[in-house]
């Protein structure tokens, strides 16, 4: 798994595509700056509005997009570059290929996402909202981990147009996550929101809190871990069973 992770990190950091990561992560700062200038969040409910703002930007949008970009390409990039041959003719269990790449992607995306989140928090000038920041950091790290696993699974099953299929999944996930009752609790987003809000001591109606994220902190963390494990197992099974053809064969 080590050499695969090393290879993936070298590949990611060496690509121009990685500049997109910084570009995406700079966007919230540009949005936060004018909000700070007009003292936007003080007019609302303080940290609640800021928390929703940060959640929608980071775990829900940017982390999802970055995971979509890299997770769906775990296999397709090797097929496009025709390098899969080298990996599939070595005595390396295929689950290690998936897990190695997954670990590398998460390791490359999480630190810049967290740094950007902290910078955004500073720009917004949310004094004293450390619990909120911690919750957002948990949700951001969880989003990178969970969405990367899910998009890796999608990329392993659908190596043709995985980005499109991943985007369709993302749209459905976002829609479902805002439907109250049981439906929303089937989504990754529901548990990420739970991570974000459960550390914050906010005075909100129970229904509102349930909609934002009704799971307990340990429950949300455990469910996300299970989701990640399931996605990686399914992804590994796909690579063990599927044949991946290069374009001239396909």
């Amino acid at each position: 798994m080590g050499p695969i992770a090393w290879l993936q990190i070298r590949q990611m950091l060496g690509q121009k595509k990685f500049l997109l990561v910084f570009l995406f992560l700079a966007i919230p700062l540009f949005i936060a700056l004018p909000i700070r200038l007009v003292d936007g969040f003080r007019q609302w409910e303080g940290s609640v509005a800021a928390g929703i703002f940060l959640y929608l930007l980071y775990p829900q949008t940017i982390c999802m997009l970055l995971a979509l970009l890299y997770g769906t390409s775990v296999i397709s990039s090797e097929i496009e570059d025709k390098t899969l041959t080298y990996l599939f003719t070595r005595p390396l269990p295929r689950w290690q290929l998936i897990v190695g790449k997954y670990v590398a992607i998460v390791a490359c995306l999480t630190p810049p996402a967290l740094v950007s989140l902290c910078a955004c928090w500073l720009v917004l000038g949310l004094e004293g909202g450390y619990e909120m920041l911690l919750g957002q950091m948990l949700a951001t790290a969880g989003a990178v981990a969970a969405y990367t696993a899910i998009f890796s699974m999608i990329g392993s099953y659908f190596h043709k147009r995985p980005l499109v299929i991943g985007a369709i999944y993302a749209a459905i996930e976002i829609l479902l996550s805002f439907i109250p009752a049981l439906v929303s609790s089937l989504t990754v987003s529901y548990f990420l929101r739970s991570l974000a809000v459960r550390l914050v001591d906010v005075d909100l109606p129970k229904e509102m809190l349930r909609l934002l994220g009704g799971a307990s902190l340990p429950g949300a963390a455990a469910t996300l871990a299970l989701m990640i494990a399931a996605a990686l197992v399914l992804s590994s099974l796909a690579t063990m069973r599927k044949e991946y053809l290069f374009s001239e064969q396909a």
Binding site: L7, R10, Q11, K82, T83, Y86, P91, P93, F246
Partner: peptide
Amino acid sequence: ADVFRRIGFCPEQDSFYAFL
């Protein structure tokens, strides 16, 4: 994996991890 340990394959396609 047992077979992969005993075979060496040189593919036709001119593909590499060119950043290495």
